[in-house]
């Protein structure tokens, strides 16, 4: 498989504190990498660095051979190639579901409105929301909003999709409907980097697991090794905090 994303020696600091400390990570085309770790370990910051929402102190992020952080070209053209879904959906509240989805394709990719709508409807149908195309975000449940946010990102046909704790704000009974969508995307071969606290989901969807603690990658491996035979004490303790005996 080809390498699509390369995070090389990335250090991110606030004042003099390194929140990410010489992180190296590569993602291959079609691979699903799931990042877990305690709150405040830097995993969300890492995603934001990929999309250049955070300036970095050292190292670089390379997307398909092109250095994108620090970014020398046009940021918007880079971000067009990277999809991102946020914890709190961040749909545009003044636009309907359909308008949310076609805004960027029409304005950025200059796709004809009719074609964009057709594509949007097909995607909505796949996530079971075609009946909601004319609803406003405030009329949707959290799970529905997040499914719209995912397909809105897909509308740009990104080379890689970043999911930042997309179920953290959801009621427990809505988590499943969102994660099922992501699992289907993984089956289709979408390249994704996922930050999550849902361990069962992580195990089901990941090709590779990454554990970050204190701004460093402490351990990475296949889901089976990662969950069954953690090599480090820190990962073992972290995984233990999710089980009740």
């Amino acid at each position: 498989m080809d390498e699509i994303l390369n995070i090389n020696n990335l250090t991110k600091a606030y004042d003099d504190i390194n929140v990410l400390d010489h992180v190296n990570l590569t993602v291959k085309k079609g691979e699903v990498v799931v990042i877990v770790g305690p709150s405040g370990c830097g995993k969300s910051t890492l995603l934001r660095c990929i999309n250049s929402f955070e300036p970095i102190r050292e190292g670089k992020v390379i997307l398909d051979g092109e250095t994108i952080n620090p970014c020398k070209g046009k940021l918007n053209e880079v971000r067009e190639r990277i999809g991102m879904v946020f914890q709190n959906y961040e749909l545009f509240p003044h636009k309907t579901v359909l308008q949310n989805m076609i805004l960027a394709p029409v304005k950025v990719k200059k796709i004809k409105k009719k074609e964009a709508e057709k594509e949007a409807l097909a995607l909505l149908d796949r996530v079971g929301l075609s009946g909601k195309k004319n609803s406003y975000p405030r009329q949707l449940s959290g799970g529905q909003k997040q499914r719209v946010a995912i397909v809105r990102a897909l509308m740009m046909n990104p080379e890689i999709l970043l999911l930042d704790e997309i179920t953290a704000a959801l009621d427990p009974e809505m988590v499943r409907e969102v994660l099922d969508v992501v699992i289907n995307l993984a089956k289709e071969g979408r390249t994704m980097v996922i930050v999550t606290h849902e361990m069962a989901f992580a195990r089901a969807v990941a090709d590779r697991m990454v554990f970050i603690d204190g701004g460093r990658i402490v351990e990475e491996g296949t889901p089976d090794d990662f969950f069954e035979n953690p090599k480090t004490e820190r990962l073992r303790k972290f995984l233990d905090s999710f089980s009740y005996q």
Binding site: F53, L75, M84, F86, E90, L91, F92, L103, V108, M156
Partner: peptide, 15 residues
């Protein structure tokens, strides 16, 4: 993050 949500779709600052 509303701005970031728009930027992440490839929209420019003006758009």
């Amino acid at each position: 993050i509303q701005y970031e949500s728009s930027y992440s779709l490839g929209m420019t600052v003006g758009q």
